[in-house]
Design a protein around this nucleic acid. Structure first.
Lengths: 207, 207
DNA sequence: TTAATTATGTACCGATCAGTAGAATTGCAA
DNA sequence: TTGCAATTCTACTGATCGGTACATAATTAA
C-alpha cells in the first residue's frame, strides 16, 4: 500500500500557512461578496497564498466554498441554536428572545460582513451556482427548521407553550423572520431596528 | 440645434425587435439568475438580438439591469401595494392578508422565477455590484417601508388599528417577514407553507 | 437620387475567469 | 547522503467576461 493518509503523513515540504486561518479568511470573503462575487485571484491575495497552494489545500472553488460554509455554520451558525433551549431554567419566551437577538447581533456586527452567509448565498442566481452548493443550502434550511420544530415540541411537553399550536407553522414563522432579518441587515439595518421586530415575533409566539 | 429627441426621431433603420418585450425577457433572466449570474451573451441569446443592438437599445449591463428592475417593480412589485389600502370597505385585517398573500403567490408562482428579484439582487455580493444598483435597491426598501408606514398611520386614523402601536416597528415587522418569504420561496417553499406564516403575521398585527 | 441617420452583423478588444503543467524548493526517511 | 514526497513558484491554458470598431443594410428627409 503506497497510499498514505494525508493527515498522518509527515513526508514532504510543510505548507507555510495555517490551513484553518486561511479557511476562515476565505469564508469571510464569501460572506462579504458571495460565491459568484468572489474570484480565485482575490482569494489567493487575501489568503496570502498562490493558486497551486490553494487548489492543493482546498480542491477547487466549489469545494473551498463548501468548506467555508461548513466553517461558517460551525462558528457563526450553530452556536446560536443552543440559546433556544438553554439555559433550561429560563422561560422559553426569554430563550427565544435571546436566540433571535444573538443572531441579529451577529448579522449587524460592525466587525463582521453584514447579513448572513447562508441567506446571501441561497439568494444568488440558480444556473451559475453548482448544484452541490444549492443542495447543501437546502439541507441547512431543513436542518435548522427541524431543530426549531424539535425545541417547540419539547416546550409543548414542558408546558411552556400550548399543545394546540402547530409547531411546524410556528417554526416556519420564526425561521422566515430570521431570514428576513438577514436581508434587512445586508441592506444596512442596525440592531436597534431589528430589536422591535424580535419582540413582536416573540410576542406572537409566546403570549 | 442638431440634437434630436430619440423618441421623436423617425430617421434611420427601424429596430427589428420590440424593446419592451426584450426588456421583459432581460428582466426575467436577472430575476432567475441575479445580476452577476446573468451574462451579456446569455442576454443576447435570450433576447434574440446581438450585442451592438443590445448596447444601443439599453446602454450597458448596469443600465439594462436598472431598467429591468424598474420594469419589475412596475409590473410585479407596486401592483401588490394597492391591496394594502383597497378596497377601503374591507377590514384592514383582510387587506393585510390579501396584500401578503398576493406577494406570496407571485413569489411561488410556478410560471415565474422563484422568489423576488429585489430580495435576490440585494443579497448579492457587495464589491462586484455597481453602487448605483445597490443604492437603487436601498431606495426600494425605503420607499416600500414608507408606504406601509403611511397606510398603518391612515388605519390608525380610521380606527382599524390602535393608536398606541408604533407604526414604524409594525411596518418593519411586515416588511421583514415579506423579505424572509422571498428567501423561503427562492429555496423552494410553496404557497401552502407560506400561508400559515401570513396568518400568524396578520394575527400579530391586527388582534 | 442623394445625404443623413439609425440598426444590424461580424469580428474583434483587453481583462479576467477557473484551473493547471512543470520546474524548483523544502523536509523527512532510509 | 540519497531518494521520495509534498509544497511553492512562475507561467501558462482555453474559456468567458463586458464592451466596441467597422462595414453593411435599411429607412427617412431633402
Amino acid at each position: 500500500m503506497e497510499v498514505a493518509l494525508k493527515l498522518g503523513s509527515k513526508l514532504g515540504r510543510k505548507r507555510n500557512f495555517d490551513k484553518d486561518e486561511a479557511l476562515e479568511k476565505a469564508m469571510f470573503l464569501f460572506w462579504e461578496n458571495g460565491y459568484l462575487g468572489t474570484s480565485i485571484t482575490e482569494l489567493t491575495q487575501t489568503l496570502g497564498i498562490n493558486k497551486p497552494s490553494l487548489y492543493s489545500a482546498f480542491g477547487n472553488k466549489e469545494q473551498l466554498f463548501m468548506s467555508s460554509l461548513d466553517f461558517y455554520m460551525r462558528k457563526y451558525g450553530h452556536p446560536h441554536l443552543k440559546k433556544l433551549s438553554h439555559p433550561e431554567e429560563l422561560p422559553f419566551k426569554e430563550r427565544l428572545y435571546d436566540f433571535m437577538t444573538s443572531i441579529a447581533e451577529s448579522m449587524t456586527d460592525s466587525t463582521l460582513p453584514k447579513g448572513c452567509l447562508f441567506v446571501k448565498t441561497s439568494c444568488e442566481g440558480s444556473e451559475m451556482i453548482p448544484v452541490q452548493i444549492t443542495s447543501a443550502l437546502h439541507n441547512i434550511v431543513d436542518d435548522n427548521n427541524q431543530f426549531v420544530i424539535n425545541v417547540l415540541e419539547a416546550e409543548q411537553e414542558r408546558g411552556e407553550i400550548p399543545k394546540e399550536i402547530n409547531v411546524i407553522e410556528y417554526a416556519n414563522f420564526i425561521d422566515t423572520m430570521l431570514m428576513g432579518m438577514g436581508v434587512q441587515a445586508k441592506n444596512g439595518a442596525n440592531i436597534q431596528s431589528l430589536q422591535p421586530i424580535i419582540q413582536l415575533t416573540v410576542a406572537a409566539i409566546v403570549k
